[in-house]
Design a binder for these strands. Structure first.
Lengths: 161, 161
DNA sequence: AATGAAATGAGAGCGCG
DNA sequence: CGCGCTCTCATTTCATT
């Protein structure tokens, strides 16, 4: 089940606050207030409300993968054989449950899934493919793209027009 | 230029702390200390050191794209014509500068770049392709994958073996 | 109904042993 | 590394429009 996001309209204040928090969520409420022309408690209320509403989904630290020995980033395009609802759900669960899989999207186009995978070395990816792709008889084929450079990385989203 | 990450060895404490901060960076130092069996100031010192060393790259809020009217997530595989260093750098800059482009990777394989793009609607993506792909005479071709479901999303990285 | 000002309490950031 | 302190910041209360 997915989070029930009561997507009500966000006003200009909310959007500005989100823009700041997406860059640095340790910014003090007083500082945010000064930048958006609001008092600290007002900022506090809005952040709380957006968190409850699921607009703010999490507050996380971004860690450099190479610093923790996870130096290989890989994209994998996966094509499945059967696209029945049960089969798709099973594949989603299988992919999402692997800790090496950072991101998993179900897509339209020439592939069915796109995975973003981070592993210490290529041998680990090889092992993962055996487990995740060759070990899954609903996977028809997959294509691998090895990242040579992380040109831009982020989950941030444009909140201002 | 890229950040100079003095990638020294992280011990088991550091890795546990990172694992916690990647889930919720608002966790108090006292709570973290209890979970990893360390005092709060010790936790603070480690976090400060890892931040200075670039292991922790940022602290950000994760915002639900649909809540801010950015409801379409798209993957684009881009193949370029010339792969000279200057041309590649120019492409990197062009892709990274677009705010709709959340993530951009330079990859090996059947494509040269993979982009993760988030826009309010398909028409916005269409406009973006004109600007970014058709307007760039070094782009040979590109393929589009529209995300129907964000099965798993994260920048988190496995810090524990 | 949402805001801003003031008071309270928790947590971060120090130096100390 | 842990213990104490200080001080900033988050959080609540209350009056106001």
């Amino acid at each position: 089940m997915r989070k029930p996001v009561r997507a009500q309209q966000l006003d200009a204040f909310d959007r500005k606050i989100l823009a700041i928090l997406q860059r640095d969520n340790n910014t003090s409420q007083r500082t945010i207030g000064e930048r958006v022309n609001l008092s600290a408690p007002a900022v506090q209320r809005r952040i709380k409300r957006m968190t409850e509403d699921g607009v703010i989904q999490a507050n996380v630290a971004v860690v450099d993968p190479t610093a923790v020995g996870q130096s290989v980033t890989i994209f994998a395009e996966v094509e499945v054989i059967s696209e029945t609802a049960e089969q798709i759900e099973a594949a989603k669960r299988a992919f999402a449950s692997a800790p090496e899989v950072q991101q998993c999207y179900y897509v339209t186009g020439e592939a069915d899934f796109i995975l973003v995978i981070v592993v210490p070395a290529m041998t680990d990816y090889e092992a993962l493919t055996r487990r995740l792709f060759f070990g899954n008889n609903n996977v028809r084929r997959f294509r691998t793209f090895v990242a040579m450079d992380r040109v831009k990385v982020g989950l941030s989203v444009t909140t201002e027009s």
